[in-house]
C-alpha cells in the first residue's frame, strides 16, 4: 500500500534516514521501535508526506508520490507526536472541519466522540482538554476520516489504561478493515493488537525482528 524505497533524509549535514526501505501492506500492522533521536518521527513525517526526502522515493499503491500529489494525502490518516486541534473550537467543530478538509461529509463526528469517550465533552472548547483527552480526539479524527493507511506516532502517549486498550482495539479494527497501519511506540502495545511485523530503527535503517526501545 505505502512503500519507502532507499529513503534518505538529512537534518543539516546529518543523515537521519540512510537508504531506509519499508513496506506497509494492506491489512497488516507494522510496529517500529527505536531510541530517542533514531529518526522515528522523521520517518513518519516523510511517509505522511509532511516533509520531503533528500533521496529515495515513496510509492502509494505502486505509484511514485510527488509533492504535487496532494490527493494521496487524503488516503493517509495520521496521529502525530503532538496532538493537534483548534483550542477555540469544540471537539465536534474540530472533527467537522477535518472531515470536510478531507473532502468528506462531516458525518459521524458525535459517534466517533462517543466511541473515544468524549461525547460528554463534545461541545467544550478543545483548549480545556487534558493531554489524554486530546489524544482521544486524535483517535476520533482517525475514525471519521476514511483512509487506507494509518501512521501513528506514539498513539498511547497520555492515555490511561482503558484508553490504551481502546487504542489497541482501534488498531485491530483497522487491520481487520484492510488498512495498512504503522505504529511507532516506546512502550509495548496492548495484547489485543495483532502485530504482523516488528522493526527496530537504528542508525537510519530498519532492522527486522527486534522489539523494545
Amino acid at each position: 500500500m505505502l512503500e519507502a524505497r532507499q529513503l534518505v533524509v538529512k537534518r543539516g549535514l546529518r543523515e537521519v534516514l540512510r537508504g531506509l526501505t519499508l513496506t506497509l501492506r494492506a491489512g497488516e500492522v507494522t510496529v517500529l521501535f527505536g531510541r530517542n533521536g533514531a529518526g522515528k518521527t522523521t520517518l513518519l513525517r516523510t511517509l505522511g508526506l509532511l516533509g520531503w526526502a533528500d533521496g529515495g522515493e515513496i510509492l502509494f499503491r505502486g505509484r511514485r508520490v510527488t509533492p504535487e500529489d496532494v490527493a494521496v494525502r487524503g488516503h493517509i490518516g495520521q496521529v502525530l507526536h503532538e496532538s493537534f486541534g483548534y483550542g477555540a473550537l469544540s471537539a465536534l467543530e474540530n472533527l467537522g472541519f477535518f472531515s470536510r478538509l478531507f473532502g468528506q461529509a462531516g458525518e459521524g463526528a458525535l459517534e466517533a466522540l462517543r466511541r473515544v469517550g468524549l461525547a460528554a465533552f463534545a461541545d467544550e472548547p478543545v483548549r480545556t482538554y487534558s493531554e489524554g483527552m486530546r489524544r482521544r480526539l486524535d483517535l476520533a479524527r482517525l475514525l471519521i476520516i476514511d483512509t487506507d493507511v494509518w501512521l501513528l506516532d506514539e498513539p498511547l502517549a497520555g492515555l490511561d489504561t482503558p484508553g490504551k486498550d481502546f487504542a489497541g482495539d482501534l488498531v485491530a479494527e483497522a487491520r481487520q478493515a484492510g488498512k495498512a497501519v504503522l505504529v511507532v511506540s516506546h512502550e509495548p502495545l496492548p495484547a489485543s493488537v495483532p502485530v504482523d511485523h516488528t522493526f527496530h530503527l537504528e542508525r537510519g535503517h530498519v532492522l527486522p525482528g527486534r522489539t523494545g526501545a
Binding site: R45, G48, L49, L50, V70, A71, V72, R73, G74, I76, Q78, L80, E82, S83, F84, G85, Y86, G87, F98, L101, F102, G103
Partner: peptide
Amino acid sequence: DQGMLDALMGAPVGP
C-alpha cells in the same frame, strides 16, 4: 502554536 501547520499539510488540500 496549536500544531495545526502539520495537520493542514497532511490534508489533501494544495498549499
